[in-house]
């Protein structure tokens, strides 16, 4: 349902002369209703890849196909309206807009207040305490991350991208979060791509993709990749080094 063909992304440094290649010739296919986890060391290019899929960054080279359609040149909102959603690694704050405002927009104005509240409860936030809060500096990083996830669930996209959903979330909530993702996986309503370092999230993947240094180091089914991540600590140092939650 999503195909990345020879995707490269380079930026020029501040001086404007030196090219830096952040992604190099990425080829990747995400199947319908599959649950894919992308992992790899910090700075490897995972977030950049997610932004390219969503249209926030445009690739220097290559093409992106979504449900057979070439979307390489489509803008962010056009991709959203075709059925893509993206939960940011670093959620954005807004002065004045409330949790309800954003959930309402995320659901394409299709869901009632009760349904919206349900999504908050699912990510472990008591809806009545949060629904009318402003998405401003009064919310903690962990609260924002959970609201970000609730928004994506409310959107019901064909392809949902989550960028390190576990970051900044406490241990107790983390266990509930895993349940949320297990539920999303079991519903098989659309494809899910999660960028994560967490073994428990890798554990529920259909497929695992390892990105390092702007390239796909390896990819395959969970059963092929996960044991190697755990044992080959030389190659996959980043993974061991992160420890476990």
């Amino acid at each position: 349902m999503l195909e990345l063909k020879h995707i490269s992304f380079s930026v020029t440094d501040e001086a404007g002369n030196q090219e830096k290649e952040i992604l190099k010739d990425i080829n990747l296919t995400i199947n319908k209703d599959s649950f894919v986890v992308i992992t790899g060391p910090n700075g490897g290019g995972k977030s950049t890849l997610a932004k390219i899929i969503m249209g926030i960054e445009k690739p220097s080279q290559g093409a992106i196909l979504f449900q057979g359609q070439d979307i390489t040149h489509l803008d962010i909102h056009e991709r959203a309206n075709l059925g893509m959603g993206f939960a940011f690694q670093q959620p954005v704050r807004f002065k004045g807009l409330t949790v309800k405002d954003l959930l309402h927009l995320a659901s394409h104005k299709q869901k009632n207040d009760q349904e919206l509240a349900q999504y908050l409860n699912e990510v472990g936030l008591n809806a009545s305490n949060y629904i009318n809060r402003e998405i401003n500096a009064s919310l903690s990083g962990g609260e924002l991350k959970r609201i970000e996830i609730a928004m994506l669930m409310a959107g019901g996209a064909e392809l949902s991208l989550f960028d390190e959903p576990e970051a900044g979330i406490d241990l107790w909530s983390f266990h509930n979060l895993i349940k949320v993702f297990e539920k999303i996986r079991d519903m098989k309503r659309g494809s899910v791509v999660i960028i994560s370092h967490q073994e428990r999230i890798l554990n529920i993947a259909d497929e695992i993709v390892v990105i390092s240094n702007g390239e796909i180091l390896t990819k395959g089914t969970r059963d092929e990749i996960l044991p190697r991540l755990l044992s080959e600590s030389d190659t996959y140092q980043f993974y061991k080094a992160r420890g476990q939650q």
Partner: peptide
């Protein structure tokens, strides 16, 4: 903030709609 516009665009709003929504919230 550009990232505010980007976020609302990922929810399906055009750039102009996103700006209007941000202003509406700000002055609410």
């Amino acid at each position: 903030a550009g990232e505010q516009i980007t976020k609302l665009m990922t929810l399906g709003l055009s750039q102009e709609e996103a700006e209007q929504e941000i202003i509406r919230g700000f002055l609410k």
